[in-house]
Design a protein around this nucleic acid. Structure first.
Lengths: 209, 209, 209, 209
DNA sequence: TATGAATGAGGATTCATTCAT
DNA sequence: AATGAATGAATCCTCATTCAT
């Protein structure tokens, strides 16, 4: 007699894997449906994990959300594996951001861009709020640093403004593609769109002269 | 002792005003907190109106949300009072969009830009979904029409893409200002930002040569 | 200017007719859907009458139900127009009851037998409870009197029991026809059923020898 | 001081028993008060069970009602433990039905005959409607089969009609006893009533010659 | 008399969380 | 570590009723 088959197939007692399964399921649901519309039971079901384990491992739904957010923040912060910021030129940062727009595989996020994670909700609690800000500020800082390195005469304020405008454009594009999935922006040829974006982004940051 | 505070002060029986009060309160809460986190009780309390009247006047929470969305859609559709689309040049549309960014008073929306209304939620039902799309498509169409009128050699696809990129920028700016209210983009001098935006927007739509 | 046409066609101020309209609408709804599932708004809509008038004329929903019940009780009590009981033979009462089963037109009750009015609900309040009993007791008494007049040697108890058994059969038939509208009992030839019922009813009351 | 009364006394975690407790409480309330007047809170309170567990175990109020109905249907269907119909003579079926009238203990149904469960309401949903019909049709079929086995010359239609008339009488008796608990039919000597019913039932089904 | 606006109580249901095994 | 039973708070909504015009 196989114990595994006899009982409703109790989960192997592997804390690390359970945690990871929950994170993956949560990532997808939070991105696709937002914080409030995502129920813990749905996450648990997706992960084939008992609901109570969410509280065990992450304390609460908020905690799980924060964990997901935290994890996604590290996607774009442009640091090396040790967590140290990497020196980059503006065009390298641009390229990295553009790559995130089309070339990367976001299937872990249900096919949506991870930025939707941040935008879908006002944020359940101060922790999430802080994480959200940190993620964005990291990107702004990274771009701003690159810009000032490239063009030393630029003031910090001007570089920040440019960086934030560039980031705005990216955020806006992600959102509009999400809201209007059948329109030109979402269906345009990837290569052409990349070129167009690059042109605009250079214009924004005055790197085009 | 204030008589106003002592008695529950039954509401004046004015359906029009009650409806308007509910709409105003809903507008604010939906914009600030999103659909799910907004409770009907909170809206009713804000409006000093009995909760049941929301169902009376709007059928359901969804119905109220749709009404708010519908109303906000008409803010940017660029039509005259009779609802007919107005002929505009690209720069006029730009100006109108820019005006929406800073100069207008969004206190009715809790100080947030009404576009946050659309972005906060996946949408409670198909009706809201449709309204959301319609609102965005109206703006895209309006801008696209203006661009092609200005530069007749532009293809429809190209004009649409430019329009959507411009709209993306605006959406992104609104969102980033919302998420990072203390950073440069949110605190920058209004006049300078307008000029910068205009420059970028012209570059996007290639109206700068 | 015609005042009748200008405003949303305010109802002619005819108290008697309004009352009657409400009663008719209520009769139908209560019979078809039972007390709880019938809403005052539905009755009012059917009667083209403002909801508040129900309270005005009948005090409450309970009051309206009681009025309907009271009215229907007089259908089977076998009294003359002045309300005095009529002397009948058992076979006359049988005939009258049988007539109620098929020959009469119950369109006022939505096509259902008025007895469904009594059975549909436990009764909203003591008044309705009392009315319900009175209606049934009247029929029992009428039949019992007739039986004892026909067969003087019968004891009061025996006559009552026979009467109640006869009434039971009628009630049961009405109900089963209602619950199984496609079965034999509900679709049988009216004439044959009447004969069969008469035979049984005679057997029950031992009037067959 | 009673420890039992002091603390809210969290329920023993026994799913089977909880389900059974809910069913029992529901059975009683639905029979006594009908579907609409029965609140889930009342059932839960009777069963000393948290309200939410009704949804957990039965999905909804409708689901619980259907479960109760389903269970009560099996009371009279005359099948063996494996669910196979039992061959019976008409008099055996009569006896079984008569037993249900007096001899059995219906305290589980609040002292009412379980048939009241079916009659109290139009039925919350199609499922309940179907169950109701099935229950009745089972009894009709059972009786009809027995009649035709006893008297082979009887046509199917005639047997069905007789069966439905017999069932009508039983239904009517249950109802009249319920509505007039102080009258002869409800208070008559059990033994005598049984004999009388048997005589009538034989007469209805023409098994008396 | 008639209207429709306003009210408050109550109902079913969903969900995050805690507890005992 | 994992399970699933139990809990209570919160939400939307419906309805009978009352009030002002």
């Amino acid at each position: 007699m196989d114990a595994d088959a006899a009982v409703p197939a109790s989960r192997p007692r592997d804390a690390t894997r359970t945690r990871a399964d929950l994170l993956r399921a949560a990532r997808r649901r939070f991105t696709l449906m937002g914080y409030e519309r995502t129920t813990m039971r749905a996450i648990a079901a997706d992960a084939h994990v008992n609901v109570a384990l969410i509280n065990r491992y992450f304390g609460s739904k908020d905690g799980l959300f924060a964990a997901v957010l935290d994890e996604s923040n590290s996607l774009f912060d442009g640091s090396d594996e040790a967590g140290r910021p990497v020196e980059e030129s503006a065009s390298e940062v641009f390229a990295s951001m553009l790559a995130g727009l089309n070339e990367r595989d976001w299937s872990e996020y249900g096919g949506e861009h991870p930025i939707m994670l941040m935008l879908r909700n006002a944020g359940p609690d101060p922790v999430a709020e802080r994480l959200r800000r940190e993620g964005l500020l990291t990107t702004v800082g990274r771009l701003s640093r690159a810009l000032r390195a490239d063009r030393t005469e630029t003031s910090e304020d001007a570089a920040d403004l440019s960086s934030e405008l560039v980031l705005s454009l990216f955020i806006g594009v992600v959102i509009l593609r999400h809201l209007l999935p059948d329109e030109t922006l979402a269906t345009a040829n990837e290569h052409l769109l990349n070129e167009e974006m690059l042109r605009i982004v250079r214009s924004i940051s005055r790197c085009d002269d």
